[in-house]
Design a protein around this nucleic acid. Structure first.
Lengths: 218, 218
DNA sequence: ACCTGAACACCGTTCAAGT
DNA sequence: ACCTGAACACCGTTCAAGT
């Protein structure tokens, strides 16, 4: 089976190659597959071009350089991340706490389901100077979801008072840390971990704290 | 100022080059400097050899390949991490809770102070198959410190009952997440963050939880 | 408007030599 | 025992052409 020419039977009836199709899309897909299969070091512009069935120089018609391709991957990742968070937040129920927790569960679930995206988004593969426009903003959107949810919970008396941004940093740290540990295989000591169970435990601990219940509150 | 020859005035009176010195050490240092200055992509074996003042082939006398050099960096990182955690835990006082919190503060402080080490330790730069021996174990040691500290806190009635390993995953997620966000510059929106203050806030939130105080405990 | 082929400087790795 | 020089296959990027 030749690799470069096996593009025909695509899910939505793609053309016989990308010569007049969507080469940027094909290159992003190729990048994700190379990273997912053999790590970030396996992503080369030339290999991505090969997978897409074009010459080594063709990518430069659509991306200024390798960083620009990585930035496209990261940007797509942030879009998918915020979408996943919003979806899980809605699915988890209408009350502010379920919404808040759903955001966290969506975050971890996105990372586990899209490790290649996650690595590019947070891995400093992009050397970029100055930061690609829109990328910083895309990352900020996910954080804003957390801050807003915390504000809602505070107004409902479910989360304790305090700067919602500071509390959001703690929440972000918890779900981001679990995600990073999962994606990096740091939790594989006894086989592949049950990511959903871990996410439920971590978000619960985040909310309740590790402290033993004290006799008097306040 | 020539780069490769400026090795003389070292802190401890190094020799005039590494030809009969410690080339492995010099290569690890060069790797850290390249990563720290220009990102992981700037680390090439050839550039590291250049910095050490030896030929491009010389590193292969000491490291099987690029992964082996990265593994050495990671292993050193894990040694430094556990040392930093132990030190902060001791400095923070004798009671179990201070010890536990000190471990977390040490973790974040190590990451902020050694970002190049941290990236190699957790960044999946090493493609390694099978995992380099001793590396997995070195990572496990830091985690064991957390588990033991949680057990001590449980026995002192400070941390609530439950599987200490599961609680340690939550604690690890929190401090690892904050560390990763700091190292990746994700918290730089309003200038460089106050890492120590963030670490204090996150470890406090981890212990107390985000929940509003409830009228009845248990 | 989009793609190719050839070119250049660079990298990982190997190997026959050197001291 | 440790290092060098030359070599090979590969990569990022550019540029003159092609259709």
């Amino acid at each position: 089976v030749s690799r470069a020419r096996a593009r025909r039977g695509g899910a939505r009836g793609g053309r016989v190659g990308y010569h007049h199709g969507d080469l940027p899309r094909a290159l992003v897909d190729a990048a994700l597959e190379l990273i997912g299969r053999h790590g970030v070091r396996a992503l080369t512009l030339r290999a991505a071009a090969r997978r897409a069935g074009v010459s080594q120089a063709a990518p430069y018609r659509h991306f200024a350089d390798k960083d620009a391709l990585l930035a496209a991957v990261a940007e797509e990742g942030f879009r998918l991340l915020t979408a996943a968070m919003r979806e899980t937040a809605q699915a988890d129920g209408g009350d502010p706490l379920s919404r808040f927790r759903g955001l966290g569960l969506g975050y971890v679930s996105f990372a586990a389901g899209h490790p290649a995206h996650f690595r590019v988004m947070f891995g400093r593969e992009i050397v970029e100077r100055p930061p690609h426009p829109g990328l910083q903003a895309a990352g900020g959107a996910a954080f804003e979801l957390l801050v807003d949810a915390i504000r809602d919970c505070q107004q409902a008396g479910i989360v304790r008072p305090g700067d919602p941004v500071a509390l959001a940093v703690s929440a972000w740290s918890a779900v981001h840390g679990l995600s990073a540990l999962v994606v990096d295989g740091q939790l594989d000591r006894d086989g592949p971990p049950d990511v959903a169970a871990l996410a439920h435990a971590v978000t619960a601990d985040l909310f309740l704290g590790l402290a033993a219940p004290r006799p008097a509150a306040g």
